[in-house]
Design a binder for these strands. Structure first.
Length: 270
DNA sequence: TAACAGGAAGTAC
DNA sequence: GTACTTCCTGTT
């Protein structure tokens, strides 16, 4: 168990921001997350955080996962003071960060996300992990499931995938897993590529369009210049930025601002 | 109940 | 290139 004081971080906001689907609330201020075949519980008390891991694991995995090396205070400060909408969105989602999540997990997750809603996405991903993910235990004996690798997806086959309630998305996942195994989709190449190249390669894949590719670039490759436009963001842009979003002002990190806006819109709808 | 949900593929022009 | 339809299924 280690303790840290961290600014610009709120677990509830991140868990509900639609960028990750395996961070669940255990109790008031306590969240559990499974990523990179590891499991972590975090308790938040204001800007104080308690992590259920060793110093070593924190530095090797979770510090980076939570993007703690990025100065979100500076990003929020850069927001145009005249832009009342964006100011309000940032005030509402002040503790959001872009998690540095696993690429393969994000590919599958955002394939599932298409024409879908958050609660159902969460259930589908959890069922997928429970059904074909590897069963694992923490040092304290807490059981959890790792996210299934491409090998596990191919091994399961369409027979199993089709029972998971994924709808027509099951074949996208199966064929993408096959593509990773046969080398036609090279994850290492994607990790090394710049945003434009990664996006171009991703949309070649069956089931991955422009929007899903942008989500994968933003959440799976940390290309924070990627700016996914879904139906919600499209409406936001039409309503608040009829002249177009000021991409020039926020060149290189517009994706982070997209996340504040998306979360704000989600909260407004609730 | 029928429509909808953080899109993409397939088809028709 | 752009417009339109269809695709699975849990939820409301």
């Amino acid at each position: 168990m280690i303790k840290r004081k961290i600014a610009d971080l709120d677990l509830r906001q991140i868990a509900e921001s639609g960028q990750c689907f395996r961070m669940v609330q255990k109790s008031e201020g306590v969240y559990a997350v499974s990523a990179f075949e590891k499991y972590l519980e975090i308790e938040q008390k204001g800007d104080l955080f308690f992590f259920s891991c060793t110093e070593k694991e924190f530095e090797e995995t979770w510090e980076d996962y939570l993007d703690l090396h990025t100065d979100y205070g500076a990003i929020k400060k850069s927001v145009d003071e005249e832009d009342a909408y964006l100011q309000e969105a940032v005030r509402e989602g002040w503790g959001i960060r872009i998690l540095r999540q696993d690429l393969w997990e994000m590919i599958v997750t955002f394939l599932v996300s298409q024409n879908n809603n958050i609660s159902r996405i969460r259930k589908s991903i959890e069922l997928l992990c429970h059904t074909i993910g590897e069963e694992q235990y923490t040092g304290d004996g807490v059981k959890y499931y790792a996210f299934p690798k491409p090998e596990a997806v191919v091994r399961a086959g369409m027979e199993v995938l089709s029972t998971l309630g994924l709808g027509y998305r099951d074949k996208y996942i199966f064929r993408t897993a096959q593509a990773v195994l046969d080398g036609s989709l090279d994850l290492e190449m994607l990790r090394a590529a710049d945003y434009e190249t990664a996006h171009r390669e991703l949309v070649k894949q069956y089931g991955i369009g422009k929007k899903v590719a942008d989500c994968i670039c933003l959440f799976g490759l940390y290309h924070i210049e990627a700016f996914p436009v879904d139906t919600h963001v499209k409406k936001i842009l039409e309503t608040h930025y009829p002249e177009g979003f000021p991409h020039d002002r926020y060149k290189g990190y517009a994706g982070i601002l997209q996340q504040y806006m998306f979360y704000y819109d989600l909260k407004a709808a609730a």
